[in-house]
Design a protein around this nucleic acid. Structure first.
Length: 265
DNA sequence: GAGTTTGAAACT
DNA sequence: CAGTTTCAAACTC
């Protein structure tokens, strides 16, 4: 690695560790017995647990009652919340309690995931922003949609095409789109053409992250980022996962989970 | 909303 | 296979 600034890295690690400590202090109170933090069960794919415009509530799922309930969070912890984007559970909350490796539900303890960093908070901000955008656009808009103009949605630039799904008339804003059931033959021909050049073009790369196999189109790719693994340009960051040894990025700031020596950050 | 930046895909 | 171009999304102003 050329011209790598180790002092800069160390300074950043210290900075992130301070953020982590602040973050721990900011954690809400543990959930009541038989409850665990969850997302909004009325909104699919919404996995954020903190709700309310000012994040004054946290959503819990009641194990025995099979209901979701919001409980106010007292924010007298002395921690400054930046732009109301403090979302403690966004990266591990789930409707499935079995997906809570970091939460000891039985002992009624909440544990911060070891991987939490400033990155996670930035992801929360991005998700919130995206949701606000979707709200403006009328809601119910799926995350998978495109705005292709020149690719005719027949190249892997198109997220829909790359994911093997047809574009949606209601959700996509693409121009001259051929990625429709009506043009099934054209779509198939385009796929075959790409496959003829690269047989694994549509094959999941199956990046392993915390024992979870990531196969969705946006998550499966490793990245080759030069400087932007902390921003939305990075597919790993975009998927809310850390870069792994499968990536070939050089930024050095998004491998806080898998890389040796950074596991405690 | 227009222009810029970015990384992936496609092309040469 | 390396370098360049094209592309769409993310981002900035």
């Amino acid at each position: 690695m050329e011209d790598f600034d180790y002092m800069d890295l160390i300074n950043n690690l210290c900075h992130f560790d301070k953020l982590r400590i602040d973050y721990e202090r900011a954690l809400p109170p543990p959930p009541p017995s038989s409850m665990y933090p969850c997302g909004d069960h009325t909104q699919s794919n919404n996995k954020e647990a903190v709700t309310g415009d000012d994040h004054s509530k946290i959503s819990y799922f009641h194990e025995t009652e099979n209901i979701c309930a919001e409980i106010p969070v007292e924010k007298n912890d002395g921690v400054v919340y930046q732009n109301s984007d403090h979302v403690p559970y966004s990266n591990f909350a789930s409707n499935n309690k079995n997906e809570y490796p970091n939460n000891d539900v039985r002992n009624n303890k909440q544990q911060m995931p070891s991987s939490v960093s400033v990155n996670d908070m930035n992801i929360s901000r991005r998700i919130k922003r995206k949701r606000e955008k979707e709200k403006v656009e009328g809601g119910n808009k799926p995350s998978l949609c495109c705005n292709c103009k020149k690719s005719e949605c027949l190249k892997r630039y198109c997220e829909c095409f790359a994911s093997g799904v047809y574009c949606s008339k209601d959700h996509c804003s693409c121009i001259d789109c051929f990625n429709k059931p009506l043009y099934e033959d054209i779509v198939e021909a385009a796929k075959q053409q790409i496959l003829s050049k690269n047989p694994s073009a549509f094959a999941p790369k199956k990046v392993k992250e915390n024992k979870k196999t990531i196969t969705s189109s946006s998550e499966r790719r490793g990245c080759n980022c030069i400087i932007q693994c902390q921003r939305g340009y990075c597919p790993c960051f975009q998927a809310g996962v850390a870069c792994t040894i499968a990536c070939h990025c050089r930024s050095g700031y998004n491998f806080y989970r898998e890389r040796p020596g950074n596991s405690n950050l």
